[in-house]
Design a protein around this nucleic acid. Structure first.
Length: 319
DNA sequence: GCGTCCAGGTCTACC
DNA sequence: GGTAGACCTGGACGC
């Protein structure tokens, strides 16, 4: 357990529209930073990595969708210098998507027969990220070849056994483990303790690669070209085409066997067929339709399946 | 109760 | 370069 006694209070002024509730608690149940974060009556307590250290966060909405504000209390183990604190504030705003202007995407989306519903339903929902891509890479490995229930079980075990427990503001929140910690573990140990199966070796190899050589941060990947970022991601052990598209900040169209059913219906009026060929066909169509907006389009559609099912008279539920 | 199948991919050997 | 087969585990399903 890591006590975080030093706290710093400040505000973030997101680019509107910014819906706090939709952004920190995605409709599809995606976590903001960790599955162990706590949300009570408009306040979120969570933990993430900022500037290479564990940060506890208390986030509260201080505005409206059109005039947004986020009140932040940042908890740290040690007090940082002023420059470092300033950079942490900037990184957090970036991680919350508060510095991203959705206007151009909404302009595009309103003309699309599918997206126009999603951008109307979820106005102000921002895509969020973490400074290091290690958690997303771990998550993508735990999503491989299993159902969502078992993925959640494996993820909970990973964080509760090997993650960092942040103690702050009367709360305790597990954050994602650091590569150095996982790199010291044997794959067989993780497989036995968390039932990762063959994924244990992939997680161990991934952590050792991060611990040994490091890897560009999310922001550094953003500064690279989309193809270069994906090429680097594909060099990571356990990361293939699907996982790289999930992680890549330039966005791709991360179609798996489940989302292939959803987008198969939306694009072609039928669930996916022909296995991988069907997935390739749907992915191609998504990239053709939505181009540089493919990731945001994917994100908005996946978060809005309930509403889209009613609006388009389709059964887009998970099967 | 038991056997079989398969799920929100990736890697490797083989052609 | 493309492609089949292996890979952990546990829940669903049929019998």
């Amino acid at each position: 357990m890591v006590e975080l006694p030093h706290s710093f209070i400040f505000d973030i002024r997101p680019i509107p529209p910014f819906d706090f509730e939709l952004t920190v608690r995605k409709p599809a149940g995606w976590s903001l930073f960790t599955p162990f974060e706590v949300y009570e009556e408009g306040t979120m307590w969570t933990a993430t990595d900022l500037e290479g250290v564990l940060a506890g966060l208390k986030l509260v909405s201080e505005g409206t969708v059109e005039r947004p504000g986020v009140g932040v209390e940042l908890f740290l183990e040690e007090s940082p210098g002023p420059d470092r604190l300033l950079n942490m504030k900037r990184m957090l705003a970036h991680d919350l998507g508060a510095d991203y202007d959705l206007a151009a995407f909404y302009h595009f989306g309103k003309k699309d027969p599918i997206l126009r519903h999603a951008v109307e339903d979820l106005k102000g929902m921002h895509s969020t990220s973490q400074s290091t891509i290690f958690p997303d890479a771990l998550l993508s490995i735990l999503l491989q070849m299993t159902n969502i229930k078992r993925s959640s079980q494996m993820m909970d075990c990973l964080l509760s056994r090997y993650g960092e427990l942040a103690k702050f503001d009367g709360k305790q929140v597990f954050g994602w483990p650091r590569p150095e910690r996982v790199a010291r573990l044997e794959a067989a140990q993780m497989a036995a303790e968390c039932k990762f199966g063959y994924r244990a070796k992939r997680i161990a190899n991934l952590a050792r690669r991060f611990a040994r050589e490091g890897f560009p941060s999310f922001e550094e990947l953003e500064k690279l070209g989309a193809e270069e970022a994906k090429r680097l991601l594909l060099e990571l052990p356990g990361i293939g085409d699907y996982s790289a598209d999930i992680i890549n900040p330039h966005g791709g169209f991360p179609i798996d066997t489940w989302s292939a059913d959803v987008f198969g219906q939306l694009f072609f009026g039928e669930r996916a067929k022909e296995g991988k060929k069907g997935i390739d066909r749907i992915k191609k169509e998504g990239l053709r339709r939505w181009g540089k907006w493919s990731w945001l389009a994917f994100f908005y559609v996946v978060q809005d399946l309930g509403n889209l099912s009613r609006r388009l008279d389709m059964d887009l539920r998970l099967v």
